[in-house]
C-alpha cells in the first residue's frame, strides 16, 4: 500500500508535478471559498477561458507561457469589462459573448496549420512537463495570492457579509470586490501552466464548494478548502500514474469527486440549529 502511494513520486518528473499541485492548491483552495461567497464563479470560468488567445500567441511566438497568460488575462478582463457594461446586451450576455469570441479566437490561432501541436497542453495543462523555473513562478504567484488573502481576510468578509454597514466597519466593498477579481486573475495565471485553461477552474471552485458544504465557520472553510485542493492534487497524480491517464484532468476530476462526497456529509448547519 505504501509502495502504491510512494513509488509514483520516486522520479523527478512526478516530484515536480507534485510540488506544482501543492503550491497551486495553497492559493486555489482558499481563493475558491471567497470566489463562491462573492458569487463570482462565472468570473472564475470567464477569466480562465478567455485568456486562451494570450496563451496561444505566446506558444506561437515561442515566448514564455507566463507572459502569454498575463497578456491573455489583461485582454480578457478588458473585454469582459467592456462587454459587461454594454447596456444593449446586459451583463451576463455581454460577458458570454466576449468569452466565446476570445476562446474561439484562441482555438482558430492554435489550429492553424503552421502551429506546433500544443493546443492540448494549453487547454488541459501539462503537469508532467513542469520545469524548475515554472515551479518558482508558481510559488511566487500562488504564495502572493495566499498571503494577500490572509491579510485581506477581514475586509473581504465585511464587504460580502454586510455591504451596507461595511464602510462604517472599515471596508469599501467595491474596492475589495475588485481586489478579489485581481487575485483570481493572478491565481489563474499561476495555475494555468499545470492545469490548463479549461481545468484550472475545477481546482479553484470544487474544493471551495465542498468546504462550504461542510465547514460551519469561515476559517475552517478556508483551511479545509486548501486541504481538499491539496488532496485532489495528490489523488489526481496517483490516479494518473497508476492508470496512465492525463495528470491535469485527473486532478480536476479528483477535486470534483471530493465535492460530490461533501454532499453526503450531514449539513453544516446541524450542530448549530439545536433550537428545537
Amino acid at each position: 500500500m505504501l509502495d502504491w502511494l510512494l513509488d509514483p513520486f520516486s522520479g523527478a518528473l512526478m516530484q515536480r508535478a507534485l510540488a506544482e499541485v501543492l503550491i497551486v492548491a495553497v492559493a486555489c483552495g482558499p481563493l475558491g471559498v471567497w470566489v463562491l461567497l462573492y458569487r463570482q464563479s462565472y468570473a472564475a470560468e470567464s477569466i480562465s477561458h478567455a485568456m486562451l488567445p494570450g496563451l496561444v500567441i505566446a506558444a506561437l511566438a515561442g515566448a514564455p507561457l507566463l507572459l502569454g497568460a498575463v497578456g491573455g488575462v489583461i485582454a480578457a478582463a478588458v473585454a469582459i469589462a467592456l462587454a459587461g457594461r454594454d447596456e444593449r446586451l446586459g451583463g451576463d450576455v455581454g460577458v458570454a459573448v466576449a468569452i466565446t469570441a476570445l476562446f474561439g479566437l484562441g482555438a482558430v490561432l492554435a489550429l492553424s496549420p503552421d502551429v506546433p501541436a500544443r493546443l492540448g497542453e494549453l487547454l488541459f495543462g501539462d503537469l508532467l512537463g513542469v520545469t524548475g523555473g515554472d515551479l518558482v513562478e508558481a510559488a511566487v504567484l500562488a504564495g502572493g495570492v495566499a498571503v494577500a488573502l490572509a491579510l485581506a481576510h477581514r475586509r473581504l468578509a465585511l464587504s460580502v457579509f454586510d455591504r451596507a454597514a461595511a464602510p462604517s466597519l472599515g471596508a469599501r466593498p467595491a474596492r475589495w470586490e475588485l481586489a478579489l477579481l485581481a487575485l483570481l486573475a493572478v491565481c489563474t495565471v499561476a495555475a494555468v501552466r499545470g492545469l490548463g485553461n479549461l481545468l484550472v477552474v475545477a481546482l479553484i471552485l470544487a474544493p471551495g464548494a465542498a468546504a462550504l458544504n461542510v465547514a460551519p465557520r469561515l476559517p475552517a472553510a478556508l483551511a479545509l478548502s486548501a486541504a481538499l485542493a491539496t488532496l485532489a492534487g495528490v489523488l489526481g497524480l496517483l490516479a494518473s500514474y497508476h492508470w496512465e491517464v492525463a495528470a491535469g484532468a485527473s486532478v480536476a476530476l479528483a477535486a470534483v469527486a471530493l465535492f460530490a462526497l461533501s454532499l453526503f456529509v450531514p449539513s453544516r448547519t446541524a450542530p448549530f440549529d439545536t433550537q428545537a
Partner: peptide, 10 residues
C-alpha cells in the same frame, strides 16, 4: 435582511 444569511459565521 441586507446581510448575507448564507455566510459561514456565528
Amino acid at each position: 435582511d441586507r446581510t448575507r444569511l448564507d455566510f459561514p459565521v456565528n
